[in-house]
Design a protein around this nucleic acid. Structure first.
Lengths: 163, 163
DNA sequence: GTGGGTGCAAAGTGTTTGCAAGTGT
DNA sequence: ACACTTGCAAACACTTTGCACCCAC
């Protein structure tokens, strides 16, 4: 489980809970600490495992009952790849709208954003009369760098911005 | 189950099976006839029900074993909304790359495409070094027409193109 | 004190699979 | 004939839920 400087995501979620008069239990605290201490995408089962490392009393049921709160807060994103299980993305606290590329060569997931998508929303409003409320874009791609000497920049950036 | 003029989707899939030396059984025929006679998105369970209306001997197992063949052929798309179940889209035979908007007001699913997405792929190649192989874009949107006199054009188009 | 939260295990839901029998080519 | 297919039901994987106890507020 990777570490990162704990930002305000955690505090923002605690505030979200308080606003709904929901309680901060030791188990929820362990789960929340875990979620906002990683940048990785994770599954429910992984979150259980990692949270138990902090507080052994965390149960599977509590993880599954806490995840909807996290997504409802808008601070954690829910992602559907082709898999049966759901993946969760803690990076929505900082970047509410971002998109995902799955690298077909190394499996890495790259996050990106582009102004073109905002433009596309304008086009949709104009042509189809829809006011876009949310979007999720998944792409699979092969790494062109692999085909050149030097290879895949696999261990470099894990998130990129293409503004 | 809606009807439509049966296009070449069915024939293309039969050809796909023949190319893999796979057999055309009566059950598969019922499933294939069903898939390519609708424009609607459907679930595995719906496909089972509709196929059984044509051939009562179709089993759930055969439906589940045939769906991967359909998606592997590229003629049927697999869609992941937030739901646990998968939805299948038979319209990939005609339009291999299209995207989905779910209307928050009436639940209708609108298909669309835009050149901007091809442009985005070019941007991604240039900036991130990824050659995009596939993409899936889901948007949720509210219908602006609803807010004007005349209301939502709900029963009109079910597919739209925004080229 | 009390209403929400918890762990446990059982139940759900959607999908996959082992097996013996059936069938297209 | 042979290998691919099938239906059935059991098995799976993931998620949800009923219940009695617990604890944050």
């Amino acid at each position: 489980m990777p570490e990162r400087a704990e930002k305000s995501g955690k505090e923002r979620f605690l505030h979200f809970l308080a606003g709904k008069r929901l309680r901060i239990t030791s188990q929820r605290r362990a789960i929340i600490d875990t979620v906002f201490a990683t940048e990785e995408h994770f599954t429910a089962e992984e979150l259980l495992e990692w949270s138990r490392a902090r507080d052994h009393s965390v149960s599977r049921a509590t993880v599954y009952r806490t995840l909807p709160l996290l997504t409802a807060s808008g601070l954690v994103g829910e992602m559907d790849f082709g898999k049966n299980r759901k993946y969760y993305d803690p990076n929505y606290a900082d970047r509410p709208y971002h998109n995902h590329i799955v690298c077909l060569d190394c499996g890495r997931i790259v996050e990106f954003d582009s102004d073109r998508l905002a433009e596309l929303e304008g086009e949709i409003r104009k042509r189809l009369g829809f006011s876009v409320q949310s979007r999720r874009l998944y792409m699979s791609a092969s790494c062109e760098a692999l085909r050149k000497p030097g290879g895949c920049p696999r261990r470099q950036q894990t998130a990129a911005t293409a503004h």
